[in-house]
Amino acid sequence: MLDFAVVLEPDNLKLYGEGLLTTVKLLVISLACGLAASVPLAVLRVSSNRLASLPVWGFTYVIRGTPMLLQLYLIYYGLSQFALVRESAAWALLSDAWFCAMLALAINTCAYTTEMLAGALRATSHGEIEAARSMGMNRFTLYRRVLLPSALRRSLPAYSNEVVMMLHATSLASTVTLLDITGAADRLYSTYYMPFEPFIAAALFYLALTWLIVRLFRRFERRYLAYLAPRTH
């Protein structure tokens, strides 16, 4: 028998509310940082200069090749073992569970988004590039006016997927003491020994957030990918 009365108690709803806020904050900030860093990295990644592309390849390979939980543990519990780190100026940030979770999430989304954008950059049609060259654009202008806007637009559908995956990845924050949606469910689970109701409630929150994200991106795609849509008249 499922009994959701416990979940609906004001105190517990408040716990979920705080969890929701934590989740959204983690998601938005890490996505913003990750995306901002991934644009220049993607440009380096497609560079014909190996000195520029190889380090970026190494970064995305390592981050995409290891589980995020492991990265988070290394950042949060691992680094704190070294007195050198604890005495450094960076400790002010690294001692904070918030910062560690955000760092791990941002690094992750940055690596995936970099590869995604690099793929879109490589897939730019040669005609567009030739046209830009024939207009006399230098490389910087070419990237700014043609390559990047086009690649960013074409990455939108894949990026919406990335955002949804990141939403789910934020649940790892509960393993480093943060009380996100999963953390809130965890607390109720361990307080009332009910395995189903608290997690089903958490799942509903995630589903609602996913629905919002998907709606938002559909709107973006309609606006920014209109030029690729089949003609309707």
Binding site: Y77, S80, Q81, R86, S95, T177, L179, G183, D186
Partner: peptide, 18 residues
């Protein structure tokens, strides 16, 4: 009040000054 999955993790964070 900061919750941990094991007391060992809490002791790690005590030693780390968190």
């Amino acid at each position: 009040v900061v919750p941990y999955n094991s007391t060992q993790q809490a002791y790690l964070d005590m030693a780390a000054g968190r």
